[in-house]
């Protein structure tokens, strides 16, 4: 599903994602700073909005196509597109191809080309830029939520590889790591009871091993899990993997300005 031989390079475009654009600006900022730390020149196309996934998952493919066409128009060029979300990346790899199944040749080609440029950020660092270990220090026991839409991709293994190479990081094993957080976009409001029950169980499992923080490669899962936890008056410390990586660099005793692969 993920194209072989995706475009690599250090001049990149950054997809903010609608969730980071509205709620999690610090994750978007950390992503850009991180990419610059590893020597990338980052462009953020101004006209970008959302990848179109909410409508796609809801079954409204007509609306999804409208948004996707906009995204295809916005991310022109031939640079890699870096996304701090396994879910939005999955949407480009999978959903974009599916909605244009009966589309024009030009649409199909545009969707394929975009997929060939798209990288989830952890996947890009390890498998795009070839960074095998991470510099710096971060002290913490981490439960790393898997984020379902990274299934079948290299995102989770890449995130684990980088985190495990950092001095002071301990990755905790927890029960039912394959299970979903219960978000699922509009599923969370159409199936509110099931969704909340799934999320509550997920929080139980993530926190049972007493982590210092919960890490994720997708803020959509975090939106749901932290929203539930807060309502249940058991908030937890949460960080996107890019925030941990950036913090590790800043904690390094000797801080090299740029990591070269």
């Amino acid at each position: 599903m993920i194209p072989a031989n995706r475009i690599v390079g250090k001049q990149v475009q950054f997809m903010i994602t609608c969730l980071c654009d509205t709620f999690y600006d610090h994750v978007a900022q950390a992503s850009v700073e991180l990419l610059e730390q590893v020597g990338c020149l980052v462009d953020v196309p101004d006209g970008q909005t959302c990848c179109g996934q909410p409508a796609f998952n809801a079954g409204d493919w007509e609306s999804a196509r409208k948004v996707i066409r906009h995204t295809l128009r916005t991310f022109t060029g031939d640079q890699p597109i870096i996304i701090p979300s396994g879910s939005c990346a999955h949407m480009v790899f999978h959903g974009y191809q599916l909605v244009f199944e009966n589309g024009t040749d030009a649409e199909k080609e545009a969707a394929r080309t975009l997929a060939g440029r798209t990288w989830e950020i952890c996947d890009f660092l390890v498998n795009g830029l070839g960074i095998q270990t991470w510099h710096g220090r971060f002290d913490g026991k981490i439960s790393l939520h898997r984020s379902c839409h990274t299934r079948g991709s290299n995102t989770y293994s890449a995130a684990l590889q980088l985190l495990r190479s950092i001095d002071g990081v301990e990755i905790l094993e927890f029960d039912e790591s394959e299970q979903c957080c219960g978000f699922g976009g509009t599923f969370s409001v159409a199936y509110p009871n099931t969704s909340a029950a799934m999320g509550t169980l997920k929080i139980d499992k993530l926190t049972a091993v007493k982590p210092d923080l919960i890490g994720a490669v997708d803020m959509a899962c975090m939106l749901h899990l932290s929203g539930l936890a807060e309502k249940q008056k058991r908030p937890f410390r949460k960080m996107h993997v890019v925030e941990i990586l950036l913090q590790a660099l800043r904690n390094a005793p000797t801080n090299p300005p740029v990591i070269h692969s």
């Binding site: 980071c20 709620f23 900022q29 969370s188 409001v189 999320g199 929203g227 539930l228 807060e230 309502k231």
Partner: peptide, 25 residues
């Protein structure tokens, strides 16, 4: 809005920070 109701009965929404990243960038 039913969707907002369905969300907020069991979850909070994080503080709205729309446009902050774009400003920083």
């Amino acid at each position: 809005v039913p969707a907002v109701q369905a969300w907020t009965q069991t979850r909070t929404l994080p503080p709205f920070r729309g446009g902050k990243f774009r400003g920083w960038y």
